[in-house]
Nucleic acid binder design. Structure first.
Lengths: 180, 180
DNA sequence: CTCTGACATGTCAACATTTACATGTCAGCG
DNA sequence: CGCTGACATGTAAATGTTGACATGTCAGAG
C-alpha cells in the first residue's frame, strides 16, 4: 500500500493540508503515478499522525490543518525509496490495459482507437512542452506541480506512447495491404 | 473496475481456464497494465458467466474448466474498448510513484536510485528485444504472450524510462557541479 | 510406490478504496 | 444581504482486492 508513502512524499516537499494533498492527486501525480481521493487521504493522515510520521503544524481558517513530516517520517520515506521495489510492485492502469487488449478488435476498430491515441498523446505532450518552457529549476519542485523530473517523465511517456501508436498503425495497415 | 474486461480480452484471444488466466497476469499484462490474482479471477469468472458474457466450453482433468467469451461478451468488450476512457481512468503504479518522489531524496541517494533504474530498464529492454527477434506475426498473439503490440509497447516504455533516468542523472550531476 | 512440484480451484477474513451523504466556512459578486 | 463557488473536513456503506488457509489431482523422478 503506497498511499502513506505518497503522502509523506508530498509533505516532504512542502507542508500541506489534506485539501491541498487531494488537489495534488488531481495533477500529474494522479495522472501517472497514484490516485487518491480526499476520503482516503483524511483518514490516512490521521493514521500517519498516530504513528508519529507526520504532525499538525498549523491550524488555519475553515478548520484547515497543515501537516508536515516529522524526522521519523522522513526516515521512513527515505528507507522506502532506497529499498528496491519487490518485483510485485503494484500496477494498475486502465489506459495501458486498453492498449493490451487492442489486438482483439478487428483492424478497422483498432485503427480508430490508435488514431485517437496518437491525437491525445500529441496534445498532452505539446502541453507539457509548453509548461516546460516557462519553468523554474529542475529538481526543486515548482509551486504548481511536482517538479521538472516528473514533467519530463510524463513528456517522455507520452512521446513513447505516441510513437508506439504510429508504429502500430503502420503494422496494421501493412498487414491489411498484404491481405488484400 | 477493469478486471472483467481484462478477462474478456484474454478469453477473446483464446479460451482458457482460470489457472491459465492467472498465469497471464504474471506476464507482461500484470507487469504494465493490470494485476490480478487467482482469488479475484475465479469469482469474477463466475459473475461473468452469470451475466452470460463467458461460458464453460470444456471440462478437463483436475477439475479444470475452460471458459470462452460468448457473442454478448465480445460485444461488451468491443463497446468498452471503443468508448473513450473517462479522464478519470484508474492509474496506480508504485514504480512511477517512486520516480515522482525521487526529488525529495538528497542528490546522492537519488543518484543511487536512478542508476539502479538505468540498469534495470536496460536489462528489461534487452530481454524484450531478444524475445522480439524470435517472434511470429505482429498482431496475432503468440502462444506465450500477449502479442507483439504489447511487447513493442513494453520495449518503448523501458527505453523511455531509461533515457529519462539518464537525463535525470545528468541534471543532478550538473547541479552538483554548479553548487561546488 | 512415494515424493515433489506444477496444475487447478476455491473460501474467508482483513484491508483498501470508492461513492454517496453530510456539514460548515469564507470571499466576491450583484 | 443573499447567492455561488471554492475551500475544508469528515463518516458510513458498498465494493473491490489481498493474504492466509484449504483441498485435491496428476506426471515424472528416484
Amino acid at each position: 500500500m503506497s498511499l502513506p508513502h505518497a503522502l509523506l512524499g508530498l509533505l516532504a516537499v512542502r507542508p500541506s493540508s489534506g485539501y491541498e494533498l487531494a488537489k495534488a492527486f488531481e495533477g500529474d501525480l494522479g495522472r501517472y503515478a497514484w490516485q487518491a481521493g480526499h476520503t482516503s487521504i483524511y483518514p490516512e493522515l490521521g493514521k500517519l499522525a498516530e504513528r508519529g510520521l507526520v504532525e499538525v503544524t498549523h491550524e488555519g481558517p475553515r478548520g484547515s490543518r497543515t501537516y508536515a513530516v516529522t524526522p521519523e517520517g522522513r526516515d521512513e520515506l527515505r528507507t522506502w525509496l532506497l529499498t528496491p521495489p519487490r518485483q510485485a510492485a503494484k500496477v494498475r492502469n486502465e489506459r495501458v490495459l486498453r492498449m493490451f487488449l487492442l489486438s482483439v478488435l478487428d483492424p478497422a476498430d483498432a485503427l480508430e482507437v490508435l488514431r485517437r491515441i496518437t491525437e491525445h498523446t500529441a496534445a498532452e505532450a505539446a502541453e507539457l512542452r509548453r509548461i516546460r518552457s516557462d519553468a523554474g529549476p529542475v529538481v526543486a519542485p515548482g509551486a504548481e506541480g511536482f517538479g521538472q523530473l516528473a514533467a519530463e517523465y510524463g513528456l517522455r511517456q507520452y512521446e513513447a506512447v505516441h510513437s508506439w501508436a504510429l508504429w502500430a498503425i503502420e503494422q496494421l495497415e501493412s498487414r491489411a495491404a498484404a491481405a488484400s
